[in-house]
Design a protein around this nucleic acid. Structure first.
Length: 192
DNA sequence: CATGGGATTGACT
DNA sequence: GTCAATCCCATGC
């Protein structure tokens, strides 16, 4: 396994990071997966939690880049983001889907399923499969329990599919959802 | 302090 | 296709 990405990778415009995270590996304990779908969020647009300014919830969104921002969605699911851009700017990339890579048995047990395509094909699914919870909010993605490792060189040539972000009501027109073309492990609705 | 709304998922018609 | 589950937190009184 390669050494994790450091903070400089995330100290860049959030859309660039969302693009370059495709192909990277998220690892937690014995489980790991390749990122095949991301979404970018920035304080300048209304769909981003940081749009309301600095609150207890958005504390880590405005913090230094390279940390995790984990929050609970719909009272049920934990969603995993990577904080980007300089400290003081609220921006993050939501990890929306992974191609399962290691620890498939543990993922199946946590998910209560056995179809590989269903293990991590959604932002709430992958956190369940990798056992990511709210306690990981603010943890360091280079040195903490959850780490992100660089993509294989072959991913440099991949052209991501762009589309509107999922499940939002504000700023729904921005094409800031990025998917690996043709992947069977992306979430629904499947991009064109 | 009460209320309402989600960056979702799985079960069901 | 519809819909409920469930909890954190932002907002407003």
């Amino acid at each position: 396994m390669a050494s994790p990405l450091d903070a400089s990778f995330f100290f860049r415009p959030v859309l660039d990071v969302a693009r370059d995270l495709l192909g990277c590996v998220v690892r937690h304990g014995e489980t790991a997966g390749v990122i095949v779908e991301t979404e970018a969020y920035h304080e300048s647009e209304a769909a981003c939690h940081a749009h309301v300014g600095l609150t207890p919830r958005t504390h880590f969104l405005f913090g230094p880049p390279g940390r995790a921002y984990v929050y609970r969605s719909y009272g049920i699911h934990a969603l995993l983001n990577a904080v980007c851009e300089p400290e003081g700017v609220g921006a993050a990339v939501l990890i929306r889907a992974l191609e399962p890579l290691e620890g498939l048995d543990a993922m199946c047990a946590r998910r209560g399923l056995d179809r590989v395509e269903d293990l991590c094909s959604g932002p709430g699914k992958l956190t369940q499969a990798l056992d990511v919870e709210l306690e990981h909010n603010g943890s360091d993605l280079s040195e903490g329990p959850i780490r992100i490792e660089p993509a294989a060189a072959s991913w440099e040539e991949v052209e991501p599919v762009l589309g509107p972000r999922i499940g939002i009501t504000k700023a729904a027109d921005l094409p800031w959802r990025l998917s690996a073309p043709g992947s069977r492990y992306v979430s629904r609705p499947r991009p064109r």
